[in-house]
Simulated assay, not measured.
Amino acid sequence: MKVAKNTSRFLAAVILSGALVLSVTVDALAFRNLKPGEVTPNFTASAAEGGSVEYAPPTEEVIILAFVRQGQDKSGDLIRELAKLDPAIADKVQVLALVVNPGDGDPVAWAKGLGAKYPILIDENEKNYGLFGVVVAPEVAVIAPDGKLKESFSGHTSSTKISVEMAVKEILGIGADGKTKEAVEVNIPQERKLAMRELQKARMFIKRKMRSKAAPQVKKATEADPTYLEAWILLGELSMEDADALDQAEEAYKKVAELDPKELMGKVGLARVRAKKGDYEGAASELEKAAMVSPNSDKLYFYLGVMHEEAGNWEKAAKAFRKSAEKCHEEVETEHQ
């Protein structure tokens, strides 16, 4: 049965049928008890707004299952980003957020406040947390319609959303431009094919928690195809983890900004590099310039507030945080109109 796209339809399906059936699987790195290609056991979860839900494969859509902890910054970032998936795949996936600490507040208010438009589920007594072998929230799995795991990701970084989208597109056979694989395969330049292979190798290193070996592979991808935006973004993220590679991170984010001036990752990345080097005022200046180009980004204003706070500019920090909250509220209001 297809999962409803909004809470009201979702709950109606639960009330009418008594149970909702779909598939879920998970990944070896993010989950201790399951490996790629395996099908998850059937399990049940309660919908935060009422009803009991039963899950079992197969499904009509690709499933993105996220174990999240309300009140946690990284989980909040993941919830927000999963509500803004690439339009090329948005209507072909079903996002499910399983809150592992429902007693620490109102899960629905928390998730909906971050823009979630998908079902919010409750993991009572961490039953499914243990069943899946979750290491630490947030963790997210991309599951094919046949119930088999495609990819899983532990924690949250600036590249998580892109990685999730890439995994979904691979399942659906969709290229970066939104066309099916069959439609674009013959038109992919040789340099891009080579770069994609190198990036895939890097992602395998990341899955095996060998991130230090991933960066050189991503570097090869950027050398094979200097216009490969996804590779530059990932190179910047990996380089940020190495104090001796900040110059490489800066170069990567500059390239991101050059290839796509509207891509927020480039602007925020450059600010993060400056902050890592101790130049918080310079970082804030970069974000203020970015805000002139992307004035509606709540996340950008949030980072701006953090930079002002680190620089000791409390009034500017408070102003930026208020602006971030306003933009987030405006976006949620627009989505519900």
Rank of each mutant, 00 (worst) to 15 (best):
G178P: 13
R274H: 09
F302N: 14
K92T: 01
L287M: 12
E281G: 11
E38I: 00
A83L: 05
L20V: 11
E151K: 13
A291M: 06
A88W: 06
E315R: 12
T227W: 00
K319G: 02
E223Q: 15
K213R: 10
Y253F: 13
K209N: 11
E165L: 00
E81W: 09
V68H: 05
A48E: 12
P107S: 09
G312K: 03
M240G: 01
A141Y: 04
K74H: 02
T222N: 11
P87N: 00
K316G: 03
G113Y: 06
V93S: 06
A215W: 07
Y55R: 02
E288H: 08
N125P: 01
A283K: 04
I63G: 10
V53S: 10
L300G: 07
V140C: 02
A83R: 04
N187S: 08
V140A: 01
K112N: 05
A275T: 08
S297N: 11
N313M: 12
V256H: 09
P189Y: 05
E309W: 05
I162W: 03
A48R: 10
A202V: 01
L82S: 05
K327N: 09
G312L: 05
V164Y: 07
Y129E: 02
K267D: 03
K319Q: 15
D91A: 12
G105Y: 13
M1H: 15
R9V: 07
L246Q: 11
K201T: 10
N313E: 15
V68Y: 10
I64K: 07
A318C: 06
I79C: 12
D27F: 02
Q248M: 15
A111S: 15
L300D: 07
Q200V: 07
V186E: 13
A19T: 10
D106N: 15
I15D: 15
V21A: 06
A325M: 08
A291W: 11
Q217A: 15
V135A: 06
